[in-house]
Design a protein around this nucleic acid. Structure first.
Lengths: 332, 332
DNA sequence: GAAAATCCGGAACACGTTTTCCTGACTGAA
DNA sequence: TTCAGTCAGGAAAACGTGTTCCGGATTTTC
């Protein structure tokens, strides 16, 4: 339509310059067919000279694939989905696949809109991710889909999630291995699956060493500070606090310091998420559980690629977390 | 190739079902050409019945456009580029454009790779964004480009940036309007343009009310705390501190509280960035300057769309910031 | 009733690549 | 010399859509 300046060279231009047909040019550039090495070289030089870059739209049309995958996220803030996205993008770009981003902002209408758009683009596959670990309604598209972080409610779908149970356990094991025997657990709202599963794992791993019930509140520093007040006011003896998030743990540390309790000498504290802004800025820096979200993103992309290739891996995949030890349990 | 199940309906299927030719079907669905309303309706019903979604690859090929724009970011952590990205994506999705994500991780090789990939996809345009406000080398592609946050070193390129001068000024004006007349400035490293420009604006706006020189350090809470020690130890009287970032401001507030100084009664504190994790969690919550990055992303996308449409807006566009007032200057 | 204007829909091609099939030339063996 | 076999490369179709042009049918006008 509006031909802006000299448009990019096409393969016919390359072919013309090399004095061959387009099909020969194609074969030369893709290392297929039967051609003399000299011919290949001639075509390659012509392509080089013209700065030819194949138009992937043509290729997409002819190959039936678009070499594109869509990523649908409901998490506009991006705390969790961003690292997943980057990991996925990393894994995909190695295979010359591009990732198109769709942020639904938790709006079902927008989600529908994006799904139509992705299907219309004939995306090779879709990654669906969210802010919470609660399972979500599967999406209905005739394309391979892998769910990341928020699994699908349909167990026949492919979902990659974090092993929250193992993560919480590893924190408790760490505390136990340090000799702590009076462990409290402060975490997020009981309405959140992540809080519940971490709490359950903590209870199970701590056994007799658990002090009281898991304390549920908001995912905030304020709740961490407040919970410390409640905990200490109750008079129960405590030598460690495992927290359901780094934010809570930071609040806990702040409050303990204000009350003159030493971390980790008097009380060891563990966080969860390894959210560097919190974990590193906390005084002292937090021992915490890294969710390895970027790896989760990579793994998700990998599974999606396999599904696209025709061998889908159905069901739930739980990826391990990694315990990061810092001064809040080890001292300096 | 690997025909997975019943492939999606094509426009020929719709045409066949409606008993018309593909061209008629195309016209009916796109509201072009001259057709009887009854025919259009028949085609529409056929499309509906088959769940037809046009293959945008075909459309892309025939229209010469790909209805896709690329976003290149060097900022893998995403503090700044994520909101920009989301804003851009928001503005683009309204126009049925998709955004493909490319995270270069500050690696020139990766950047080259992505550029080739985007050109090969015949992207309609490219948005380039980064982590810092320092100008960056322009990219060399035969496609419209708009730079966001990090402007291009070439003034003939289109760049959208934050009005840092105005932002810092607004914070100082606010402090002055509250009657503060002894204002210190604590900010990031002098090697960062953002720190320098904010400092310059602060010096200019504060005039006689400025206390001492701008204090440069790292962008961290720790530096904020340390700077307070240095400042107060020097014995100079101070009734307000304007900080170059929310992280620094939070550190400042923490330290002041520890030293028994009341914020804002003894000293008012302002931050910069309106990074909610810091600004809201700080005690007290921070009055700060919102960079309106999402709006910046939207505006960038808008300019890119105009450039794609053929009327590029060359040069630098500075977008205003927004002062957000909270307890760190206003009290409760 | 015939010529002109209008309306509707189809055939053909373009977009850029890959791939399948085919042809002509050359080689070597019988 | 002839025949089979190999090799190098070209012609054409396919992918799915949009668009341009054109012809037939219907209506209008004199």
């Amino acid at each position: 339509m509006a031909s802006r300046g000299p448009s990019l060279p096409r393969i016919t231009d390359v072919a013309a310059l090399a004095g061959v047909s387009t099909s020969t040019a194609s074969k030369a550039l893709n290392d297929t067919g039967q051609l003399r090495e000299e011919t290949r070289e001639r075509v390659r030089r012509a392509a080089e000279q013209l700065g030819f870059t194949p138009d992937s739209r043509g290729r997409a049309l002819s190959s039936g694939r678009s070499y594109t995958v869509g990523l649908i996220t409901t998490d506009s803030s991006g705390r969790f989905s961003i690292p997943i996205m980057l990991g996925a993008e990393d894994a995909l770009s190695a295979g010359e696949m591009a990732l198109v981003l769709c942020d639904t902002r938790d709006d079902p209408l927008r989600e529908q809109h994006y799904l139509r758009s992705l299907v219309s683009r004939r995306v090779d596959g879709i990654i669906v991710t969210g802010r919470r670990t609660e399972p979500r309604e599967p999406i209905d598209v005739p394309i391979p889909v892998v769910y990341a972080f928020s699994p699908s409610t349909d167990p026949a779908d492919t979902s990659v999630i974090v092993d929250d149970h193992g993560g919480a356990s590893s924190a408790v094991q760490h505390l136990l291995s340090l000799g702590r025997r009076r462990i409290a657990h402060i975490t997020g709202p009981a309405s959140h699956r992540s809080a519940l599963s971490r709490a359950a794992a903590t209870v199970e791993s701590a056994g007799d060493a658990l002090v009281g019930e898991p304390m549920h509140g908001e995912w905030s520093e304020r709740w961490g500070r407040h919970a410390v007040d409640v905990l200490l006011r109750s008079g129960t003896e405590v030598d460690a606090i495992s927290c359901g998030s780094d934010q809570i743990a930071r609040g806990v540390c702040d409050r303990l310091r204000e009350l003159g309790r030493s971390v980790p000498d008097d009380l060891a504290v563990t966080g969860y998420d390894n959210w560097s802004v919190m974990a590193l800025a906390s005084r002292p820096p937090l021992t915490t559980v890294d969710l390895e979200l970027e790896e989760l993103g990579r793994h998700t992309a990998q599974l999606l690629l396999e599904a696209i290739a025709g061998s889908p891996h159905r069901g739930l995949v739980e990826l391990p977390t990694r315990l990061v030890t810092r001064e809040s349990t080890l001292g300096t």
